[in-house]
């Protein structure tokens, strides 16, 4: 696919730069961001923690939020998450 351009297809409400942060901070920060958003709104997360891919997948499965995209380029992971629920 087209790397970072993937995320440009979505209307991103907020972008979180979690580069250089390790578990559990990226998902804690995402949780905070989602709290202030309405259902259907989209958050984009940039992260470098190699554990973050499995963490974001697990987070979304368990909380019901939707992981629309996850991609990686030059050691930076990009996640696009849609808020589901109140």
């Amino acid at each position: 696919m087209d790397g970072f351009n993937v995320s440009e297809r979505y209307k991103v409400k907020e972008t979180l730069d979690c580069k250089g942060l390790y578990c559990p901070m990226p998902i804690v920060k995402m949780k905070k961001a989602l709290k202030g958003m309405a259902e259907g709104e989209i958050v984009k997360i940039l992260a470098t923690d190699p554990g973050s891919k499995r963490d974001f997948e697990a987070f979304c499965r368990k909380t019901g939020n939707k992981l629309l995209e996850s991609s990686q380029e030059d050691g930076v992971f990009t996640y696009i998450v849609e808020k589901v629920g109140p």
């Binding site: 578990c23 559990p24 998902i27 804690v28 995402m30 949780k31 987070f59 368990k62 909380t63």
Partner: peptide
């Protein structure tokens, strides 16, 4: 505390 905070983020 890492488990507790990760859990908190995941509604645990």
């Amino acid at each position: 505390f890492m488990l507790a905070s990760a859990g908190g983020a995941m509604d645990v």
